[in-house]
Design a protein around this nucleic acid. Structure first.
Lengths: 233, 233
DNA sequence: ACGCAAAATTGACATATATCAATGTTTGAC
DNA sequence: GTCAAACATTGATATATGTCAATTTTGCGT
């Protein structure tokens, strides 16, 4: 029961897990956000947001990891990116049509704040530094999608899988040994190939001594070789 | 010689070719933009902006058609979209790193205004309606890239080519008979396949009576069948 | 009208990739 | 601990797609 009450919202003022974006708010603005946010804990595997639904709130991931993905044709998923704490998640729906254009699912237990969209827009309207930083964040995400578009359409499978692994290394964990938060199938969804192809490529990487996968852990043994495969395509 | 002088900038106030975005400016703001813009005429085939260069200005296409494309791996191009009059072209570089992240080349003779980036930002800062509409525009572009990501990675070649043709019909010309502004090679770049594959698919479409291509013109004979191919993938 | 260069076309072939079916392995619920 | 369900693996095979090389067509400058 005490656990239940632990889940009650902390105030934003004392929160150490806030997305850096919100550090640009003055106390008054932060109060306004604080009064209009909801804090929710998710278990690994739970859906945080479903593509297509009305965007009543924007999100801030305070803790844990989640996958952001588009539900494409015939239910096939395309994982866009992995988000870690602390990240703001908005998306093109904020100003376009107030809908979520991707789904988000927790990969680990995760703690997420939902900030009322209108309140977010109000604050954005009144604080130009905040608005610029938001735009910068958004633009960075857009650029990442451009890059994915290129490498998913112009590289072959080994290059795409190398990119997926290097992405986890460079952007998410920043160390060569990290937990396998994604199943083979999800790695396939991240690199736009079939599950079986993903398995085969990973086996090849393993045989060539580039990576070691065991016990829910992956170790990248030869970063340079992976980068070369990524480059060659 | 008189032609040379025709190219001198008209004032934005009397311009009928302005991107709708700029209609949201008040006279004072429009004057400010007018005083800080450059108007240039391009011939078909000329490069309007080159990916990677410093973004000193944002663009407004007043007349003509242009292709917006990313220069990917080994010089392979991915055409993102076709722009027609009247369109604003900014991109993620505005707020991220002040660089152009795609190249733009004129497909027909084209008339383009270059608006000083700082001036654009100033106006955006001071006019919230303008800012919101800009964001809406930007978000629409982003969504289009999401869709491209899905259909380029999850559809097979016939579906992708059908999408390319339907894009020209639905978004650009809005009639089933339109000039072939894109070469076969460029159609291939728009649908992420090799030039030869594009030729073969188009031949198939032609044999099946879906399209007719001749004399620099394309006629879509069976829109519904194309839509079906697009759906099936 | 001529001839050159670029673009388009073709079919044969090589390669990349998905699919299928069968099997093995892990995980979590009871 | 057992069982079922999900996940992972494998090799065989089918399909999609790219590449190559040869040829034809088109566009354009003189």
């Amino acid at each position: 029961m005490s656990e239940y009450f632990d889940k009650s919202p902390r105030s934003c003022q004392e929160c150490q897990c806030m997305s850096p974006l919100f550090c640009l708010l003055n106390p008054e603005e932060l109060n306004y956000v604080d009064a209009n946010k909801i804090h929710v804990e998710f278990k690994a595997g739970e859906t945080i947001k479903k593509q297509g639904t009305f965007m009543s709130h924007v999100l801030s991931v305070n803790n844990g990891l989640a996958k952001v993905y588009i539900e494409g044709l015939d239910g096939r998923l395309a994982i866009l990116r992995i988000v870690k704490a602390t990240s703001f998640i908005g998306g093109p729906g904020i100003y376009f049509d107030q809908r979520h254009h991707y789904s988000i699912t927790a990969l680990t237990d995760a703690s997420v704040c939902f900030i009322n969209l209108q309140v977010f827009k109000d604050v954005l309207k009144g604080n130009h530094t905040f608005a610029e930083e938001f735009l910068k964040d958004f633009s960075r995400d857009v650029l990442a999608v451009y890059n994915r578009l290129i490498y998913l359409t112009q590289k072959q499978m080994p290059g795409r899988m190398a990119d997926a692994l290097l992405y986890l290394y460079d952007e998410i964990f920043k160390q060569v040994k990290f937990p396998m938060i994604l199943s083979r199938f999800e790695l396939a969804e991240l690199s736009a190939m079939s599950r079986e192809s993903a398995v085969k490529i990973l086996r090849d990487f393993h045989r060539e001594g580039l990576v070691k996968i065991s016990d829910h852990e992956i170790v990248i043994l030869d970063v340079d070789a992976l980068r070369k495969i990524s480059r060659v395509g």
